[in-house]
Amino acid sequence: MRAAMVTALGGPEVLTLVERPDPVPAKGEVIVRVRAACVHPADIAARVGQIPGGPVPPPFMPGWDIAGEIVATGAEVTEFAAGEQVAGMIPWYLTRGSIGAYAELVAADPDWLVPIPPGLDPIAAATVPLNGLTARRALDMMALTEPTDVLVTGASGGVGGFAAQLATQQGHSVYASATHDDEDWVRGLGVHTVVPRSAQLPTATVVLDAVPLGEPAGAAARPGGVLLSTRPTPPVDPAKRVRQEVVLVQLDRPALRQLLESVAKDQLRTRVAATFPLAEAAEAHRRFEAGAVRGKIVLVP
C-alpha cells in the first residue's frame, strides 16, 4: 500500500509518499480501505514537531480522521464485517504516528469506528470525527442546565462551526465570530448573531475560543462565567472567577454516531474546501498553511 509519511521534521516537503506492506489484521483489529482522510492543524503541528509531549521522531504517519470500507477483520471481531462503510477517529495522541490516516489501508481498533449512515459521502464523513467530537466535548464541559449566551470564536472552522450549531440546537443564544468572507455561511448555521472578526468581541457567560484568540476571548468572558479553548491560552484575571479549561477530544462512539447521523440528515452542516490525492499530501499541507481555507481539506487515497 501507499502512505504519506513524515520523514523529517519541517515544512510540507518532508511529507513523502512511500510503499509499505499491506497491514494484516491482528486479533481484534479490522483493516479499513481509506476513502477519505481529513487534514487538521494537529497534523501540521506534528509535522513541525510542536505537539504536547514533545516531537515524535520521524518517520511517522499523520492523520486522525478516516472514512472508508472494511476489507478484512481479525479474530474475535464480531461488530463489523468486510464491505461495511465506516468512519472514525484514530487516537493519534496514543498512536503518535505508528498508525495514522494518511494511507490507503489502516489497521484499526473497532472501538475507533462507527458505521457511516446510508447516503453520507465518505469525504463529508471524514470531516466529522475530530472536529465534531471536540465540539461535543466542549458542550459537555460547559455543563449548562438552562439556555444562556455562548460566544464561539472561529465559527467558520471545524470545531467552532459544529459547536455553534450544537449550542444553537440546545437553545442557547450563540454569538459567532467569523471573518468577512465567512459571515454568510456562519449565519446559515442558525446562530443568534454573527460577530465580524474585525469587531470587538461581545461579553458572554460562556466563551468557546476555538481559534484560539487568547486574551481577547478571555476578556469577553463575564465574571463567574466559563472560558473553554482548544489550546492553552493566557490565564484570566482570577478576580473574574472564570472557570478556564482546555477542551481535549475523547473517543465517544455514541456521540460520533449521532453526529454523523445529524450530518446525513442535514441537521448539521459541514463543508469541504478541497480534496487532494494522497500523493499530493505535501501540497494539501501547503494549501492549508496558506490560509483563507473555506472548509476542510481532505485527502482521497
Score class of each variant (00 low, 15 high):
residue 3 A to T: 14
residue 4 A to E: 09
residue 8 A to Q: 01
residue 8 A to I: 05
residue 12 P to A: 07
residue 12 P to K: 12
residue 17 L to E: 01
residue 17 L to P: 02
residue 25 P to M: 05
residue 32 V to H: 02
residue 34 V to T: 09
residue 38 C to N: 13
residue 40 H to F: 10
residue 47 R to P: 06
residue 52 P to G: 04
residue 54 G to L: 12
residue 65 D to G: 01
residue 72 A to T: 04
residue 74 G to Q: 09
residue 80 F to L: 07
residue 82 A to S: 13
residue 86 V to N: 05
residue 89 M to F: 03
residue 89 M to R: 15
residue 91 P to F: 05
residue 96 R to H: 11
residue 98 S to T: 13
residue 109 D to C: 12
residue 109 D to A: 15
residue 109 D to H: 09
residue 111 D to A: 15
residue 113 L to Q: 06
residue 119 G to T: 13
residue 120 L to V: 12
residue 122 P to S: 08
residue 124 A to N: 11
residue 126 A to K: 01
residue 133 L to Q: 10
residue 134 T to L: 02
residue 141 M to D: 10
residue 143 A to F: 01
residue 157 G to E: 01
residue 166 L to Q: 10
residue 166 L to D: 04
residue 168 T to L: 03
residue 171 G to L: 12
residue 171 G to T: 08
residue 173 S to T: 13
residue 174 V to A: 04
residue 179 T to C: 07
residue 180 H to V: 14
residue 188 G to V: 12
residue 190 G to V: 08
residue 190 G to C: 10
residue 193 T to C: 04
residue 199 A to C: 07
residue 203 T to Q: 15
residue 211 V to F: 06
residue 214 G to V: 13
residue 221 A to W: 08
residue 223 P to W: 13
residue 223 P to M: 14
residue 224 G to M: 03
residue 233 T to C: 05
residue 240 K to P: 09
residue 240 K to N: 12
residue 241 R to L: 15
residue 244 Q to I: 04
residue 248 L to H: 14
residue 254 P to T: 07
residue 260 L to S: 07
residue 260 L to T: 10
residue 261 E to W: 03
residue 269 R to F: 11
residue 273 A to D: 12
residue 274 A to K: 08
residue 274 A to V: 07
residue 275 T to R: 03
residue 276 F to L: 15
residue 277 P to R: 09
residue 287 R to K: 11
residue 288 F to V: 02
residue 297 I to D: 06
